[in-house]
């Protein structure tokens, strides 16, 4: 979980980042088998960053997937991403 935050902060300079470990809700499900100690495999992540400006949704996710490739390789199983630009976040937060 810390590694996810570190990688995102280092590369995307987010103005907002929230990471929630959702692994508990998936306990016993096949994705949890073989998980590293601690069983951190399912995360919900919100990132607000100017790095997403001008990028389509798939491109934004690819950017984050690439940063987290080592985590996927070591047992990260599901990553729920909400990726917004500061302008989008302001619109949603103000709505």
């Amino acid at each position: 979980m810390d590694r996810i935050g570190r990688a995102i902060r280092a590369h995307l300079s987010p103005s907002l980042i929230e990471i929630e470990d959702d692994s508990g809700r998936h306990a016993g499900h096949s994705g949890m088998r073989g998980a590293a100690a601690g069983g951190e495999t399912h995360f919900n992540v919100l990132v607000v960053s100017t790095a997403f400006d001008g990028l389509a949704r798939v491109q934004r996710s690819r950017l984050v997937h690439d940063l987290l490739a080592p985590e996927f390789a070591s047992g990260l199983h599901a990553l729920s991403l909400t990726l917004r630009t500061p302008a989008e976040q302001a619109r949603i937060a103000g709505a």
Partner: peptide, 9 residues
């Protein structure tokens, strides 16, 4: 198109 997050959004 995307995965669950993108389709949901």
């Amino acid at each position: 198109v995307g995965g669950c997050d993108i389709v949901t959004e």
